[in-house]
């Protein structure tokens, strides 16, 4: 870390910064220039730069190393690839897969119909959220009770089960029923570390309005708990016009900074079915390894406006397989 002092910083203010850096575990290296002083803090220490920025006489603080070492390519330069379940289903470099299913499960009949679809198109992972808030404000889905159904049908159709966890008290049940844990990156670090301790493949969803850096710091919590099977999942960002769109640039940046596999929740990002295919294809070209797609069945009360019906899903999967092939993703896990 480099601390640039203000031009008129006093000797006492400089001393206070040196003392603070020492206290934090850094070795301070001071350099007095013609008009301002610079203090370099050398050492492998975690620090909230705001603590230094707020000190008297400090002009700015420049962080040299990242606060998300385990998630970054600094110590892990090559793409991470890992397996779900018994080892055949791979996520990461060279592979491309789709997690599909109802946005939220409301009935067994609906789930059964959609499992057929997921199995027929070979997407491998049956995914559903615990609950979903519809456009009209209603909240649908069976919550954690849907996990049992997911497990039952995943086993029956030889699929893997993925769903979201929202509360720490649900963790042991989640571990029992799910193969992939979906979690928002906005949860507190303690909860994220507990998720990491489960040791399950984890889909870490970037919350709206959070930066790439904040998302990677959340990933760091899971990784530091000893779980290296983390997928970072991007969603939509707000546009200036008040709408939402996918942030292709953030996908490219994340790929460059981090070795972790990337996903895009295409249905949540598009929020209407006529955009899902374009978003999914664009994200695949940009480099995502996994796409999340919501499916709709007549018997469900989910959103027909957002989730894909069987025919649309069939067309999309065929297109995606074609694109993946052109991109040289030879091992398409679908």
């Amino acid at each position: 870390m480099i601390v640039v002092m203000q031009q008129r910083a006093t000797e006492e203010e400089i001393s206070q910064v040196i003392e603070k850096l020492l206290k934090l575990g850094f070795d301070p290296y001071r350099s007095t220039g013609a008009s301002l002083s610079i203090i370099a803090g050398v050492g492998n220490c975690f620090v909230d730069v705001r603590e230094i920025e707020m000190m008297a006489g400090v002009r700015k603080v420049i962080r040299v190393s990242t606060p998300y070492k385990l998630a970054s390519r600094e110590i892990h330069p090559t793409d991470t690839t890992f397996a779900i379940g018994n080892g055949e289903f791979k996520i990461g470099a060279g592979y491309f897969s789709v997690f599909a299913g109802p946005a939220a499960i409301e009935s067994e009949v609906e789930l059964e119909a959609l499992c057929d679809l997921v199995k027929n198109f070979g997407t491998g992972v049956l995914r559903s959220r615990a609950t979903l808030q519809l456009e009209d404000g209603r909240i649908v889905g069976l919550g954690k009770d849907s996990w049992k159904l997911l497990r039952k049908y995943a086993d029956r159709f030889q699929l893997y089960a993925a769903s979201e966890v929202n509360y720490p008290e649900e963790l042991s049940q989640a571990a029992e029923y799910l193969d992939v844990i979906e979690i928002s990156a906005s949860h507190n670090h303690e909860f994220l570390r507990q998720i990491g301790m489960l040791g399950k493949p984890t889909l870490l969803v970037r919350a709206p309005e959070t930066t790439i850096e904040q998302t990677l710091i959340s990933a760091e919590q899971i990784l530091s708990a000893g779980n290296d099977r983390v997928i970072i999942c991007d969603r939509a960002v707000r546009t200036v016009q008040g709408g939402s769109t996918i942030d292709i640039d953030s996908i490219l940046k994340l790929k460059k900074i981090s070795h972790l596999p990337l996903a895009l929740d295409a249905s949540a990002a598009a929020n209407r079915k006529d955009r899902v295919a374009a978003y999914a294809a664009a994200a695949l070209v940009a480099g995502v390894d996994v796409l999340l797609i919501e499916l709709y069945s007549e018997s469900g009360t989910g959103e027909a406006a957002r989730a894909l019906a069987a025919e649309d899903f069939a067309v999309l999967i065929t297109q995606l397989k074609g694109i993946a092939k052109i991109l040289g993703r030879q091992n398409i896990c679908m």
Binding site: L22, P28, R30, T32
Partner: peptide, 12 residues
């Protein structure tokens, strides 16, 4: 001054 600042840093 700059040279001795470095020496002091290393002594510290």
């Amino acid at each position: 001054r700059r040279l001795f600042e470095r020496i002091i840093d290393e002594s510290r």
